[in-house]
């Protein structure tokens, strides 16, 4: 009688443990995907803020600074650039990269900058730092080109649309 009870208990335990294993396995897959996307969006936010910060302070990498001295002196003055929001669009599985392709769009505001050429420069820098931040967060710098376009995470490949000024 005692042996029978013990056997029944073990079977219940195995079934329960099996269900738990299946649930955990399924959850880990979704948690992993969601967690990776979450990490990417955090990296994008940090990168975009870094790009905006360079524009706010008007302190640029040496080559860019020299270029602006000749071509775009207006960008040598600090400008008030704010990142308003960051959006993304899933473009589906991309066979070329064997990853899911996602297009990022950053919305920013720069009321002090009226010139569209200057805005393009500022937007390109924000996008560059956003992509760079993704590549650095996932250690994929060697997979991409010098401007990190596209940027890679483990499961996704990212491109950026032109910054939307609002």
């Amino acid at each position: 009688m005692n042996m029978g009870s013990k056997g029944q208990l073990t079977a219940e335990y195995i079934i329960t443990a099996g269900f738990i294993f299946l649930i955990v396995y399924a959850m880990i897959f979704y948690i992993g995907e969601a967690n990776e996307l979450n990490q990417v969006m955090s990296a994008v936010r940090i990168g975009a803020a870094e790009g905006a910060s360079a524009d706010n302070m008007a302190i640029y990498p040496d080559e860019t600074f020299k270029d602006y001295q000749k071509e775009r002196p207006g960008l040598l003055n600090p400008s008030s650039v704010k990142i308003v929001k960051i959006d993304y669009k899933n473009l589906g599985f991309n066979l070329t990269y064997d990853k899911v392709k996602i297009q990022l769009r950053i919305y920013a505001s720069a009321p002090s900058v009226k010139d569209s050429g200057y805005r393009n420069c500022i937007g390109d820098r924000i996008n560059f730092y956003a992509r760079k931040s993704i590549a650095e967060a996932f250690q994929t710098q060697n997979l991409s080109n010098s401007v990190f376009n596209p940027a890679f995470s483990d499961r996704y490949v990212f491109t950026t649309r032109d910054v939307q000024w609002i």
């Binding site: 990490q39 955090s42 990296a43 940090i46 870094e50 910060s53 302070m57 931040s133 967060a137």
Partner: peptide, 16 residues
């Protein structure tokens, strides 16, 4: 990861 990246960004902004 998020905290580490955030701290790096804050440090860089501080320098700039």
């Amino acid at each position: 990861t998020i905290v580490s990246d955030g701290m790096d960004m804050a440090k860089q902004s501080d320098e700039l």
